[in-house]
Amino acid sequence: MKGSMFAIVGGAFLTLQGVANTRISESIGTWQTAILTQFTGFLAAFVTLLFIRDTRRGGFRAVKPLYLAGGAFAAIIISSNITAIQQIGVTLTVAILMIAQLCLTFLIDSNGWFGVTRQKMKLPQFLGIAMMIAGVVILKL
């Protein structure tokens, strides 16, 4: 239940982030927006970290270098998201984001990549993705 609440709030924040970034980029530019939001976010998280010292087993040295690079994707995610929202609107952008995310997450799950527990891909799951793509086509009509 607590996990689901975090997931809903996370979803709302993700859409809010895209909308707010699009608005900010109209005033100061796209890369500037990415730099500003990541930097202010970093500062806020860093200050919190100083009060909540929650570093635990292993530390950064125990993390595979590849996984440490995840944060850097934000530069491309933010700029692509802003341009997409400007061109096709929030709903369509989020709908396509959704399909890409589900397809890739499921590809990762079904192959057990990155040490994720392996899941079997079933026919209904292809049907689900097909329905989602049909939904995007309907939105575009």
């Binding site: 995840g70 998201n81 096709i88 959704m98 997450t105």
Partner: peptide
Amino acid sequence: GMALALLAGSLISLQNI
């Protein structure tokens, strides 16, 4: 716009993991 949304979505799921 649609291609950029696909790219962003793929990177988001990778980043989450």
